[in-house]
Amino acid sequence: MFLGTHSPKLDDKGRVILPAKFRNELAEGIVVTRGQENCLYVFSAAEFNDLHEKIRQAPVTSKSARDFLRVFLSGASSETPDSQNRITLPANLRQYAGLDRDLTVIGAGNRVEIWDTEAWNTYLAANEEAFSNTTEEVIPGLF
């Protein structure tokens, strides 16, 4: 499980060093793709394969399912960490997420999310109070 918040830097070649505590789970391969709210999702290869199997169950006759599948999978890139534990974030994904030098990498359970630091800070500021004040069940059976 991926947890925590980290602040790595993007180098001039579009590479990032993922946090050490995430490396074991990602050692067998990584898939990076577009995420919601203009961040990037990073999945282990195994988790991405499981997710893909679920996506494949969606009916081809559903326009919203087709749209989601196209955007989600067309941006996906299989990456392998180099000897210094860096992965390259493809230019189209960096552009999608508005990534510059300063990144925020968060653990989000089954995935890692990569955010532009300013975008993350804006998102967190806009959502932190609502999170603190949640008085109803958001996820069935959680609390």
Rank of each mutant, 00 (worst) to 15 (best):
I30M: 12
F43Y: 15
G141D: 07
R56G: 08
A76M: 10
T134I: 12
V31W: 00
S7P: 01
V71Q: 11
D100F: 00
F43D: 03
R70L: 12
L93S: 07
L124E: 08
A97W: 02
F22V: 09
L69P: 01
E37C: 02
V138M: 11
A27K: 15
A91H: 02
R101A: 08
V71D: 12
V60D: 12
I114G: 04
L89Y: 00
L10H: 03
G107R: 12
G75H: 10
G35M: 05
E128W: 11
S62W: 03
N49W: 01
G107F: 09
N133F: 01
S74M: 12
A91T: 03
N85A: 14
R86Q: 06
S132G: 15
L69F: 05
T117S: 15
V16Q: 05
S64P: 07
L93I: 01
T88A: 11
G4Y: 09
I55T: 08
A125N: 13
W115A: 00
L89K: 05
A46T: 14
L3P: 02
A126N: 15
Q36F: 14
V60Q: 13
F131P: 00
F68D: 12
L103C: 06
M1F: 09
R56K: 15
E129A: 15
F68H: 05
R66V: 12
N85T: 05
A65Y: 05
G4W: 08
R23T: 09
E28W: 02
A46D: 15
M1C: 06
I17C: 11
K63M: 13
P90F: 01
V42W: 06
D12E: 12
P19W: 07
A130I: 03
A130S: 15
L103P: 07
K54C: 04
P81L: 10
V112P: 04
T135N: 14
P59E: 12
E113Y: 03
Q57H: 01
K9G: 04
P81E: 12
F143Q: 11
E25Q: 13
A58H: 03
F72N: 10
S44Y: 06
L124C: 03
D100P: 01
R94A: 00
P19T: 09
T88R: 11
S78K: 12
P19G: 11
A119E: 00
E53Y: 02
F143E: 13
G4S: 10
L69Y: 05
L40K: 00
T122L: 04
A45H: 06
F48M: 08
G29V: 09
K9R: 13
I55K: 04
R23K: 11
D12M: 00
E136R: 14
A130L: 08
F143W: 10
Q84R: 08
V105N: 06
K54R: 15
T80H: 10
K54T: 08
S132N: 14
V71K: 10
H6G: 03
L40F: 01
A125K: 13
E37Y: 06
L69N: 08
G4A: 12
N92S: 06
S64E: 12
G107I: 10
S62T: 07
Q84Y: 13
I139L: 14
E113Q: 12
T88W: 01
P140Q: 09
G109N: 15
K63V: 13
G107A: 10
H52F: 10
V32Y: 01
H52W: 04
G109R: 11
